[in-house]
Design a protein around this nucleic acid. Structure first.
Length: 573
RNA sequence: CGGGACGUAGCGCAGCUUGGUAGCGCGCAGCGUUCGGGACGCUGAGGUCGCGGGUUCAAGUCCCGCCGUCCCGACCA
């Protein structure tokens, strides 16, 4: 392509209040334009990157036997009611009606539709299958943000494995795990595979692929010495044993004005250090009020509570007035001793503990000598607490670290939820009928692009890996009015094109500085600078975007040299 | 959904306190000079001041409502 005839509307002014670096650079470089909140036009430069990302994904999916299809994004709501997700997923699902008043939804993921399709399978001989598509997904996000990182409409590669049994599912899952590592690596991303919560997807196990970046929204726990990695929503850590002394009897004591763990601990250090207090929280789960008990120095990880309760996503802390109505006291004096009419969840850190302090459900009074299992009617034990930096690794005991990351992929072992809902049953060799066992696997394309930019840029702009760069080489013509220079540039240009190199000829009537700056902002991996000076001496300059290093290359060896470099970049993994 | 801010030329912004002929920078068009790191001169085009209502002789500016966008939080298979 010729730059002068390509719509590359680079800007030199960043969007005023954009936060994410990738957002600024993709807008400034002319890759994307915002249409409305969480909705972006992908311009020609952006589309070239997107297509390369898609090609990598397609290759790797085909390599594990994936079959590509395209499914509708407009679904009858009926199907979502059939799977139960119509009510389960909440407000993130776009819902609409057609002219006849029929309820429709816009697909946010497509287990339902693939489930319907899977009902056409009848024999174990047809399994396993891996089906996939790359198509638009819609999510009515509460708060779209950070450019392409969190949008309402985006492209997802979603694939689904279909197997006769659990070992088969494990194989399909592992194939995806390996394929995903290759995909992200080929995109130039260093992705960590971490244990994750399955949330409202259902299923038994899930693994998230995460890029370390401050622009991310997920918190990841990793061990400093072993390979334990997990999303905080799933992560756990080892507890050190506590010495509670001798069990004591329950006792009430006045605690006027002491409404926080900290102030209570300071006022009564001998009996109420934070790790000897019981923190009592009141939550509503699907509208039902419940108590959640944690050690005083621990915080609740909400997703863990949802997972423990097995409910959808309707969770909220109770309001102070609701708490008074339920327990007869305000936050700061709450406890679970003697409470029988509410479901009580308790964190494992409290199991077997005694001689603890908790609120007396009367303002300004606390109880001491609490033995959790003797005095509290715990309905369900679970790992509910949030891991923090410095906790001990469950696997090896070293300390763990928390960092922020961008979720670029997520793979789930689903089980039979959708196959049962849609009648996807096959017969085994004995003629017995079994629901197909499904896995589902997703990669967000545009988010992946943004993640690349987040991790590949400098103060001049984007540094695209060769594998996904909108162009591999830019030929910067310094004097378009010099016939010898133009002729040389045209010759190199057509030779590179013939060699299959993705090349753009910067033939604009701009001054050199503008062209250099633009090529660096846009992030093209290699730049060939051709000017009268070099043409005369038979040599041109070859600049590498990563470190802006420049070497002189003779015109004779230029194409061969470039081909070698480009090939190397394309095949890196 | 709670809190905060913003909406004026394609982009980035000033003007609003104290109402009185719509501004700046970049970009864009024409001509000329310039040309190996974001050039310069001259000329010019481009605006329902987010939308609706109100106050006023007069509203970009004051008041009310709505819409949109961003940021923090809540939320986020």
């Amino acid at each position: 392509m010729r730059w002068s005839q390509t719509f590359i509307p680079t800007l030199r002014d960043a969007p005023a209040d954009a936060e994410a670096v990738s957002h600024k650079l993709l807008v400034r470089g002319g890759f994307i334009r915002q249409l409305s909140a969480g909705s972006y036009t992908v311009l020609t430069l952006g589309q070239r990157v997107r297509l390369k990302v898609a090609a990598i994904i397609r290759q790797e999916m085909n390599a594990i036997g994936g079959q590509e299809m395209v499914l509708p994004t407009l679904h009858p709501a009926e199907i979502w009611k059939q799977s139960g997700r119509y009510d389960l997923v909440g407000e993130n699902l776009f819902r609409l009606k057609d002219r006849k008043g029929v309820d429709l939804v816009l697909g946010m993921t497509e287990e339902e539709i693939f489930g319907v399709l899977a009902s056409e399978l009848f024999s174990y001989r047809q399994l396993p299958q891996i089906w996939y598509q790359m198509h638009t997904k819609f999510r009515d996000e509460a708060r779209p943000k950070s450019g392409l990182l969190r949008v309402r409409e985006f492209t997802m590669k979603d694939s689904y494995s279909l197997d006769i049994d659990v070992p088969g599912l494990d194989v399909g899952f592992d194939k995806h795990r390996v394929a995903y590592k290759r995909i992200f690596s080929r995109m130039g991303l260093h992705a960590f595979d971490v244990l994750a919560s399955s949330g409202a997807m259902g299923g038994t196990e899930s693994v998230e692929f995460v890029i370390r970046s401050a622009a991310g929204e997920d918190w990841i726990v990793t061990c400093e010495s072993c390979d334990y990695r997990a999303n905080v929503e799933k992560a756990t850590s080892a507890l050190s044993p506590r010495d509670d002394g001798a069990p004591a009897d329950l006792d009430r004591y006045a605690t006027p004005g002491l409404r926080t763990i900290k102030t209570l601990a300071e006022a009564h250090p001998e009996i109420a250090s934070p790790d000897r207090q019981i923190k009592t929280l009141v939550y509503f789960l699907d509208g039902e009020p419940v108590l959640v008990l944690l050690r005083g120095d621990h915080d609740l990880q909400q997703q863990k509570l949802l997972d423990a309760a097995g409910v959808g996503e309707d969770i909220r802390p109770a309001e102070p007035e609701e708490i008074v109505e339920l327990l007869g006291a305000s936050p700061g004096s709450l406890g679970a001793v003697g409470v029988s009419e509410l479901r009580i969840f308790a964190d494992e850190a409290l199991r077997g503990r005694f001689n603890l302090t908790t609120g007396a459900n009367q303002d300004d009074w606390h109880l001491s000598g609490v033995s959790v299992e003797r005095d509290i009617d715990v309905g369900q034990w679970g790992d509910l607490r949030a891991v923090v930096t410095g906790d001990s690794c469950v696997t090896c005991g070293s300390s763990v670290e928390l960092w922020k990351g961008i979720e670029v992929g997520h793979i789930f072992k689903l089980g039979t939820k959708y196959s049962e809902a849609f009648g996807a049953y096959v017969q085994d060799e004995n003629g017995d009928s079994h629901p197909v066992i499904m896995g589902s696997y997703g990669i967000g394309l545009e988010r992946g692009m943004a993640a690349i930019v987040e991790t590949h840029h400098d103060d001049r702009g984007i540094i695209w890996p060769v594998s996904v760069a909108p162009f591999e080489v830019v030929i910067t013509v310094l004097r378009g009015d010099d016939p010898a220079t133009t002729a040389t540039a045209e010759k190199v240009y057509s030779e590179l094109l013939e060699s299959g190199v993705d090349v753009i000829l910067d033939d604009r009537a701009e001054r050199p500085g503008v062209k250099f700056a633009d090529s660096e902002l846009v992030g093209i991996p290699f730049r060939v600078t051709i000017g009268p000076r070099g043409v005369e001496s038979g040599a041109v300059e070859l600049t590498t975007r990563t470190d802006l290093s420049t070497v002189e290359v003779s015109l004779d060896s230029l194409v061969g040299d470039l081909l070698e470099r480009v090939d190397l970049g394309r095949s890196l993994i």
